[in-house]
């Protein structure tokens, strides 16, 4: 795999369209999934995906093989998505959420939700909390890492996460109500 990647990257650096397409095919679907989570809608996700691939090919010579290509590509797309939304990011007031985790309300509804519905929920989150939720819950970043990447305080990161949790719980409750009617 390592040699294959090395060869593929070398061909991309030689500006071979076939090699670039091979890279695109390999990552497009997965990265589009990432973009969809970070963006509010499909059109924006397409835009970010496109920017991400341009950035990927422009910076390919910087890949030093000290990690996996998949991890490096994922970081590029997350950074692209964050940068794309950075100007629009608004971090609302800290939401105190002490006992929310105890509230398991909506778990039944949750088990019945499809990935598409979950994606819609994420996309409906406010910009700031959506980014923090994605980074913390799905990408496994720590609050201090999120704070450093987004240029916010750890407290803001935590509050955004809490806000995301609260919003999602509310959405789940609403979904459950609709289904019970």
């Amino acid at each position: 795999m390592f040699d294959e990647d090395k060869d593929l990257i070398a061909r991309c650096l030689n500006r071979e369209v076939a090699a670039e397409y091979q890279i695109y095919r390999r990552f497009a679907a997965k990265m589009f999934g990432v973009c969809l989570r970070y963006c509010g809608n499909d059109a924006e996700a397409e835009e970010v995906l496109q920017s991400g691939f341009i950035r990927l090919f422009a910076n390919l010579q910087q890949f030093r093989f000290d990690g996996t290509l998949d991890g490096w590509v994922l970081r590029i797309f997350i950074t692209t998505a964050i940068n794309h939304r950075r100007d629009n990011l608004r971090y609302s007031q800290v939401v105190e959420l002490s006992d929310e985790l105890e509230d398991s309300g909506g778990n039944d509804a949750l088990s019945r939700l499809s990935v598409k519905e979950l994606l819609t929920m994420i996309q409906q989150l406010p910009e700031g909390s959506r980014t923090v939720f994605n980074m913390y819950v799905i990408e496994n970043y720590k609050h201090n890492e999120i704070a450093a990447i987004l240029g916010i305080s750890e407290g803001t990161s935590k509050s955004q996460l809490n806000q995301a949790r609260a919003t999602i719980r509310q959405m789940l409750k609403n979904t459950e109500k609709k289904r019970s009617l």
Binding site: E20, A29, F57, I122, R165
Partner: peptide, 29 residues
């Protein structure tokens, strides 16, 4: 559990982008 659900749902989540994305990428490259 909510976070676990999201994490497991999106751990391998993929969606095929429209063909126009590649066309645009190629046109820019």
């Amino acid at each position: 559990p909510i976070e676990d659900k999201f994490k497991s749902a999106f751990s391998g989540f993929e969606q095929e982008p429209p063909e126009r994305v590649w066309n645009n990428v190629r046109a820019q490259l």
